[in-house]
Simulated scan of single mutants.
Amino acid sequence: MTEWIPLLQAAGHTVVHWSEVGDPRAPDTVLMQWAITYDYTVFTHDLDFGTMLAFSGAEGPSVLQVRCLNVLPEAIGTLVLSVLLAYADEIEQGALVVADERRARVRILPLIRQN
């Protein structure tokens, strides 16, 4: 998702692609721990990150998960920027934000399973 870096930086966000700071072959848990340590939000199309948050009960990092077929900035850049703005406070405190072309949903962390 390196194609997202210019758009997000132009909008004032501090952005880094995992391949610039970590091993691309590292387990997702390593990326998540790095994001917690350095106070980054994980931006992904991968469903695994939301699942990890749900099962771990962790309070971070925040994850913005896009669930669209076309995840290029040209297709959903406006959507992503509007979601980042609309849920900035929630992302700051720790949240899972899931967005698609129709809507965005936010859940504050930790995600606690109800029995």
Rank of each mutant, 00 (worst) to 15 (best):
V66T: 15
V66S: 04
R67V: 07
R67P: 01
C68W: 01
C68D: 10
L69H: 09
L69E: 05
L69T: 06
N70R: 08
V71N: 12
V71H: 08
L72S: 13
L72I: 02
P73H: 04
P73K: 05
P73R: 03
E74W: 09
E74T: 14
E74Q: 15
E74L: 13
A75G: 03
A75T: 09
A75I: 04
I76L: 12
I76K: 09
G77R: 03
T78H: 11
T78Q: 13
T78M: 03
T78N: 11
L79C: 02
V80H: 07
V80D: 05
V80G: 06
V80A: 10
V80N: 05
L81E: 00
L81H: 08
S82L: 07
S82T: 10
V83F: 00
V83Y: 04
L84N: 08
L84R: 09
L85H: 11
L85T: 12
L85G: 02
L85I: 01
L85C: 00
A86P: 02
A86D: 09
A86V: 07
A86K: 07
Y87N: 04
D89E: 14
D89A: 14
E90R: 14
E90Q: 15
E90V: 06
E90K: 14
I91R: 10
E92Q: 13
E92W: 13
Q93G: 02
Q93V: 15
G94T: 03
G94Q: 01
A95V: 02
A95W: 06
A95I: 05
A95D: 03
L96G: 00
L96V: 04
L96R: 03
V97F: 06
V97R: 05
V97M: 05
V97L: 05
V97E: 01
V98N: 03
V98D: 03
V98F: 04
V98G: 05
V98C: 08
D100A: 10
D100W: 02
E101K: 15
E101C: 12
E101P: 10
E101Y: 10
E101D: 15
R102S: 14
R102E: 12
R103A: 15
R103G: 04
R103T: 13
R103M: 10
A104G: 09
A104P: 11
R105M: 11
V106Y: 07
V106T: 13
V106C: 11
V106L: 02
V106G: 06
